[in-house]
Each structure stands twice: as structure tokens, then as C-alpha cells.
Computed example of a mutant assay.
Amino acid sequence: MNPRESWLLFALGSAFFAALTALFGKIGVAGINSNLATFIRTIVILLVTAGILSLRGEWARPANLSSQAWLFLVLSGIATGLSWLCYYRALQLGPLSKVAPIDKLSVAMVILLGIAVLGERPAWPTLVGGALILAGAIVIAVF
């Protein structure tokens, strides 16, 4: 499998599992505190990831990571946690069919952040796709 197909396969897997995350999350937060639900989800993710690292023999010494890697992984973890807390609360309060697509505005936002922060120069199809995601989220939120 060439590298292009490899990242695409994982991206499609991510989308599929994100869809299941939304469905299972909506069902799972019914009747419980959304923050507690996020905590339980986080423990499960920790255990699953530790299991994968163990099975694949991929454990490494964290001391070998640069301070920049540590900083941005910690910031990413904080952002992920806040995203999950907001997402589960939104699932608790709103319909799955609106919450999940609006959450995917992150795709359009990351295109803009890639441009502003990393200096990326996306191709026109990427910009058009981001604009369509934005338009779709507006239609879903308003109507």
C-alpha cells in the first residue's frame, strides 16, 4: 500500500469510529452526568491504547521526547479533553443529527488554522470542501 492510500485508510477509519463515537455517546450519556461520561470514556481510551502499545511492543521512554513535543502533546490533550466535555454535553442536550455534523466544523477550522499557524497552502478543492462543510453546518444549525 502506498503512503497516500495508508493515510486515507486511517482517515476513513477515523471517520467511521467517530460516527460510532457519536452514536454510542448519545446513548451512553442518557441519564448520567456528561462530565462523568467523559471521564469513563477517557479511562477506556487509556486502557485500549495501553493494550495496543503492549501488543505491538511500542512502549518508549517519555524522557526521550523533546520539551516542544511534551508541550504540544499536553496542549493537544487539554484541547481534546475540553472538546470531549463540550461534545458529550452537547449530545446530552441536542439531537445527534445536529450535534455531530456541527462538531465536524472542526474540519473547516483546522483548514484555517493550518493556513494561519503552519503557513499551509491548501489547494482549491480543500478550500471549497471546507466552505461546503461550513455551509452545511449553517444549514443544519439554522433549519
Score class of each variant (00 low, 15 high):
33 N>E: 13
33 N>Y: 07
34 S>C: 03
34 S>H: 11
35 N>Y: 15
35 N>H: 15
36 L>K: 08
36 L>I: 15
37 A>D: 02
39 F>V: 15
39 F>R: 02
39 F>C: 08
40 I>D: 03
40 I>A: 12
40 I>T: 11
41 R>V: 04
41 R>F: 06
42 T>N: 05
42 T>L: 02
43 I>K: 08
43 I>E: 06
44 V>H: 13
44 V>T: 15
44 V>L: 15
44 V>D: 10
48 V>W: 12
48 V>H: 09
49 T>F: 00
49 T>N: 00
49 T>M: 01
49 T>K: 00
50 A>W: 00
50 A>D: 00
50 A>H: 00
52 I>G: 01
52 I>W: 02
53 L>C: 12
53 L>T: 00
53 L>S: 01
54 S>F: 14
54 S>A: 15
55 L>T: 02
55 L>N: 10
56 R>F: 07
56 R>P: 00
57 G>Q: 09
58 E>N: 09
59 W>D: 08
59 W>E: 08
60 A>P: 03
61 R>Q: 09
61 R>M: 02
61 R>L: 05
63 A>F: 03
64 N>M: 04
65 L>E: 07
65 L>K: 02
67 S>N: 09
67 S>W: 11
67 S>Y: 02
68 Q>A: 07
68 Q>K: 13
68 Q>H: 06
68 Q>I: 05
68 Q>S: 11
69 A>D: 14
69 A>K: 10
69 A>I: 13
69 A>N: 07
70 W>M: 07
70 W>V: 12
71 L>W: 05
71 L>C: 11
71 L>E: 08
72 F>Q: 06
72 F>A: 07
72 F>E: 03
73 L>F: 02
73 L>G: 03
74 V>S: 05
74 V>L: 07
75 L>K: 04
75 L>M: 09
75 L>P: 05
75 L>H: 01
75 L>C: 05
76 S>G: 12
76 S>M: 06
76 S>N: 12
76 S>P: 04
76 S>H: 08
76 S>W: 09
77 G>Y: 05
77 G>W: 01
78 I>P: 07
79 A>V: 15
79 A>G: 15
81 G>I: 03
82 L>N: 03
82 L>W: 05
82 L>E: 01
84 W>V: 10
84 W>R: 09
85 L>I: 12
86 C>I: 14
86 C>W: 07
86 C>K: 04
87 Y>F: 15
88 Y>D: 02
89 R>K: 15
89 R>I: 11
89 R>V: 13
89 R>G: 06
90 A>E: 10
90 A>C: 12
91 L>P: 07
91 L>T: 09
91 L>I: 11
92 Q>C: 04
92 Q>R: 10
92 Q>M: 07
93 L>V: 13
